[in-house]
Amino acid sequence: MRVEVKGLKKRYGRTVALNGVDLKVEEGEIAVIMGPSGCGKSTLIRCINRLVEADEGEILVGGQDVRRMSPTELLRLRRRVGFVFQHFNLVERLTVLENVILGLVLSGVKRSEAEQRGAEALRRVGMARHLYRYPHQLSGGEQQRVGIARALAQQPELMLWDEPTASLDPIMVREVLDVMQELTATSHPTMLIVTHEVPFALRAADRLVLLDRGRVVEEGPPSLVMARPRSELGRRYRDLWQAHLADLSQQEIAGQKRTISACRRKLAQAGS
């Protein structure tokens, strides 16, 4: 599902959240949107399925202008779009499986079929053993995986990820990133991912979009953006990436040294 945003503007009172955003994401493309906090990333992604109403501009999803859709058309669109929230947004009184199939059942899918699809989605995110648990019985990472399964169960043509790891501790971030990594590698819906995870973004993204003060300041393939950043924000992300790579090299050298020492100890023991 192709997404095209033209001159999108959104204000909250006096605060300008989006100040004329232009963006194109081709069908099956994975676009990662990065930028400092408060730059309008979440607003942009929520405007796409009209969880937030934009003030001006055009949002074309699959060729249809979302802002001109009737309520029925909007509902239909939302059922084809998966949305993963930063705070999971699970319904506390429903089980894991019920949370996943809520949208399906209420959109008219038979309960049995919905449960099958739900169970499959949960299996994909590694939550097959927790179908009948309630959200409060799960860890943050598990809850987010349920949130991802809920989006997947819709069999979406477009997936919108709103900082899915921002509310998680580092261990749980890893859990969720692994799932996302796996999904981006194996699924083919169009994806718009808002995240601060630079390594993940550079590994997974087909297109990196840098947003600052409500405007797209730079976009393109991640390798290109990181190699020749044109904006201050791009340079900052590049520095961050290089620091990360250096850190990784140090870790690798230390790891090799430890391996050599261990081999030597084993050889010495064998010799003696």
Binding site: L51, R78, R79, H87, N89, V91, E92
Partner: peptide, 25 residues
Amino acid sequence: DEQILAGEAVGLTYAQVMREIVIPA
């Protein structure tokens, strides 16, 4: 608000949001 948004995001009508999410809670 998160629960209402969750309902909206999966394509529920407002009536369904109220009936399935808000009122039961």
